[in-house]
Simulated assay, not measured.
Amino acid sequence: MSESRMDRAQFLRRAAALGLLAGVGGTAAAGALPPLAAAAEGSETQAGSRGAGEAGGRRRHPRLAFKGVAYDVGTGFLGDDSRARWNHELMRGEIRAVRHRLHANWVSIYGSNVERLVETAEVALRQGLAVSVQPRAFDEPQADALEKLRQVAVAVEGLRRRYDKEVILAVGCEFMLFTPGIVPGADFFERVEYLTKGEFDMKELQRKFRTFTAQMVKVARRNFQGRITYGAAHDLENVDWSLFDIVGLDYYSYHEDPAGHTKELAPFKKWGKPIMILEFGCCTFTGAPELGGMGWDIVDFSGDVPVIPPQYTRDEQAQADHLANMLEVFTDEGFLGASMYTFISSDAPHRPNDRPHDEDIAAFSLCKVRRKDSDDPASPYRWEPKKSFHSVARYYATH
């Protein structure tokens, strides 16, 4: 196993110890303002979609104004890039598929490279998609994170002024875990270890978290005139949503009864602001929905190559059904939008004739990737839609 692969495995296992890092495995959030125009003509905002009656006393059905998917432009950690192969034409083709094959009207763009974030956002806007843009990094010093956000905010403000589709700025993601200076520790590993010991003052950690978040909001407001949000770990971070226009959540919970979701999500409605689910989903095996954001942890990294243990059966239908069910939940809750994690995971190739090493089984993506050289993350690849892709496309086309 290469050193970078060993580091990645260590990263995931340390993260698993917390049970909080939903979404990391694919690489790797109240004074309400008036709702903005819907992302697509005829869509309803959260505020106007619940409990309103139509002519004749019939109840109007809620709809998601923003029907989206998360899209990684390359998230760096431990010296790696989750999109080792990247070029403009490849990205354009994938964004075109988001618009015309998935029938989405919003793409939630995240990653570490400012140029890629802005380039992808402009391509999406030209395709007629609304966009949210989120700079994301691991162990980036706070001063560097503030400067990167400033650069992104300035660039996407230019896009917001130039195009007539919605442009939203997400100031970041799960700061308590990824950003130094909040939780003690020189790097991510040390912060995780500190938290797993359980001997800390959560009130003090939350104070530091809110101080840094307020600084990021200040930079965003100074350089961007559109709506802002944040990708919050819904079960960890106590966000002051009065600073934001939209409540943004990374949500991977599983409940057999939708009432469980209603109960868990109710506190976020008390802010009186639109809610967007920036991430949700599951991996591609039987039982993955129950594991939620921890589905990637089934991979055995102890040998020379990653192995999918034999008790896990590839099951595209389980993923497809779960995504459709969750879209129903978020629609019924009257949320502004939802984007599943994630469109593509090019670092988890599909090996159809080699089940023990079919890394796509433990991927959250709507597409399976077939590389020319499955052992080289920078090699050319083609992607094929999974059943979940078709399930989401049908939902988006008919709702």
Rank of each mutant, 00 (worst) to 15 (best):
Ser4His: 13
Arg14Lys: 12
Ala22His: 13
Leu33Lys: 13
Ala39Ile: 01
Thr45Asn: 15
Gln46Lys: 02
Ala47Met: 10
Gly51Ala: 07
Arg59Ile: 10
His61Ser: 13
Thr75Ala: 06
Thr75Met: 14
Gly76His: 13
Phe77Ser: 07
Arg83Gly: 05
His88Ile: 01
Glu89Thr: 04
Arg92Glu: 15
Ala97Cys: 01
Arg99Leu: 06
Val114Arg: 14
Glu115Gln: 12
Glu119Cys: 01
Arg126Asn: 12
Leu129Thr: 00
Gln134Ser: 13
Phe138Ala: 00
Gln142Asn: 12
Asp144Val: 08
Ala145Val: 00
Gly158Asn: 09
Arg161His: 06
Tyr163Gly: 03
Glu166His: 07
Phe178Cys: 03
Thr179Val: 06
Asp187Met: 08
Arg191Cys: 06
Lys197Met: 14
Gly198Tyr: 12
Met202Lys: 14
Glu204His: 11
Leu205Arg: 05
Leu205Gly: 14
Gln206Lys: 05
Gln215Val: 01
Met216Cys: 15
Met216Glu: 15
Lys218Arg: 13
Gln225Ser: 15
Ile228Ala: 09
Leu236Asp: 08
Glu237Asn: 10
Val239Gly: 02
Leu249Phe: 11
Tyr252Glu: 03
Gly260Phe: 08
Glu264Ala: 10
Glu264Cys: 03
Pro267Gly: 06
Lys270Thr: 15
Lys270Ser: 13
Lys273Ile: 05
Met276Cys: 14
Phe280Glu: 11
Gly281Cys: 04
Thr284Met: 05
Phe285His: 03
Pro289Ser: 07
Glu290Met: 07
Gly292His: 08
Gly303Trp: 11
Ile308Tyr: 07
Thr313Ile: 13
Arg314Met: 06
Asp315Leu: 09
Gln319Ala: 08
Leu323Asn: 02
Leu327Glu: 07
Leu336Gly: 09
Gly337Asn: 10
Phe343Cys: 03
Ala348Thr: 00
Pro349Leu: 00
Arg351Ala: 06
Pro352Glu: 10
Asp354Ile: 03
Arg355Pro: 14
Ala363Ile: 00
Leu366Trp: 08
Lys368Glu: 08
Asp373Val: 06
Ser379Thr: 05
Lys387Gln: 09
Phe389His: 06
Arg394Glu: 04
Thr398His: 15
Thr398Gly: 03
